[in-house]
Design a binder for these strands. Structure first.
Length: 192
DNA sequence: GATTTGATTCTCT
DNA sequence: GAGAATCAAATCC
């Protein structure tokens, strides 16, 4: 299927293709404005899959198009979309986006006092706005029957910027964060 | 078995 | 800008 083809290949090539794509979870839909690429075993020290398969990252080793949702800092969920062919264990972290549907529900989940632009500005915020948690781990976002779905743009955006990833201790210099310039929903860069 | 760390965010100073 | 919240996985005895 064409959509699956677009999620295969080197993760740093796949990641920008997700910019402008829309992730829908029930009533809430988010247009992605910022993503980050993480490669597979032995290729990327910042990736969860770097040291091989564990219970947590097992989804990353599966086929492309599945959600990898993990729990971190004892309180936050972050969502990735697995890319590459089965066994590659690369994934793209959904870092930020713009709520384009289900605004009321997103506000309810994130708090009434949160500015609209901050609803999904940051990976844990994005997952929260979509209502994603551990139960969404492993869902196939290309499956029309899935509660969480990904809609790619018919054409990938041509204009995007790339820079260092946020919050990683290792491989900080690798410019694998991609974002849409000028978007107010892009999260601020923070060096770890 | 114990300790450290983390793809973070919120709150208070 | 610093500190807290809070837990699973990774890393050390």
């Amino acid at each position: 299927m064409a959509r699956l083809d677009r999620l295969t290949g080197p993760v740093e090539k796949v990641a920008p293709r997700l910019l402008g794509a829309v992730v829908r979870s029930g009533a809430v839909a988010i247009r992605l404005t910022e993503v980050e690429a993480y490669a597979g075993v032995g290729e990327d020290e910042a990736s969860h899959s770097h040291r091989g398969r564990t219970k947590r990252n097992a989804i990353m080793f599966g086929p492309a198009g599945h959600l990898y949702v993990y729990f971190t800092y004892g309180m936050h969920w972050c969502a990735n979309i697995v890319t590459g062919v089965e066994g590659t264990a690369s994934a793209v972290l959904l870092r930020a986006g713009e709520v384009v549907d289900g605004l009321e529900l997103a506000i309810e989940r994130r708090g009434a006092r949160v500015p609209e632009k901050d609803l999904a500005r940051g990976p844990a915020r994005l997952a929260s706005a979509l209502g994603l948690d551990g139960s969404a781990n492993g869902l196939n976002v290309l499956d029309p029957a899935s509660p969480v779905r990904l809609t790619l743009r018919s054409r990938a955006v041509k204009e995007f910027e790339a820079g260092p990833r946020v919050g990683v201790a290792k491989e900080a210099e690798r410019p694998w964060r991609f974002w849409l310039p000028g978007e107010p929903t892009v999260s601020p860069y923070r060096r770890r």
